[in-house]
Amino acid sequence: MGDKLTIGGREFTSRFMIGTGKFPSDEIMTQCLFESGAEIITVAIRRVDLKNPDSDILRVLDPKKIFILPNTSGAQNAEEAVRFAMFAEQMGFSNWIKLEVTPDPRYLLPDPEETIKAARILVKNGFTVLPYMNADPVLAKKLEDEGCAVVMPLGAPIGSNKGLTTIDQIKIIIAQSNVPVVIDAGIGRPSDACLAMELGADACMINTAISAAPMPPLTARAFKLAIEAGRQAYLGGHAAKRDTARPSSPVDGISK
């Protein structure tokens, strides 16, 4: 299949990014990872414990099989986000960073000004930047202009599982973007992910909807299938909606 997701010059077959937070155990997380077929997994730098590799989440992640994308979760401003990213690089991660700047610890909504500021510094320092952002089309273009590798608008507030409540803005972001658009937060059900992909999103990033599900591995598989279905629907295109009936076996030629 030639349908690859290309980010920062790197190709991925899967369009499903998965998070590592909130799972009940490493075992269930790795099962979900397997079922999801995801090739990118995000890890919060603040959670990584390199001094105790045996007790750390990285113990169960094989970097040969999955691309580990560190995130700046917990950073409240640009300065902190840049520091987190540089710390991640020092830890031995690549220079890819999922940029999260969330000054409000309750709703974890991204700060647009500080995200732009941090993105500018990180791009200048050679990082491949994947910014989490509000679904603001102007902001998306500004982050693209700063040299971000993707834009990652939220579908709904993070952890809310409410789906694509920002759908109108997401449609504009997709229409205007020159970089891949990854729907990052709020996706609650596989049907939400499928819709996002049908609309033309390039990928979906999902965590809570899987980790908080009663049977996380099964849900991870459902998301995989939904994302694939949505992508194929987007590629295949869909017939127009209309108010009148149209027979599926046309009769136009009969009178000739």
Partner: peptide
């Protein structure tokens, strides 16, 4: 609690 903190 599950929604906001997961199983942590």
């Amino acid at each position: 609690t599950d929604r906001h903190f997961g199983k942590n």
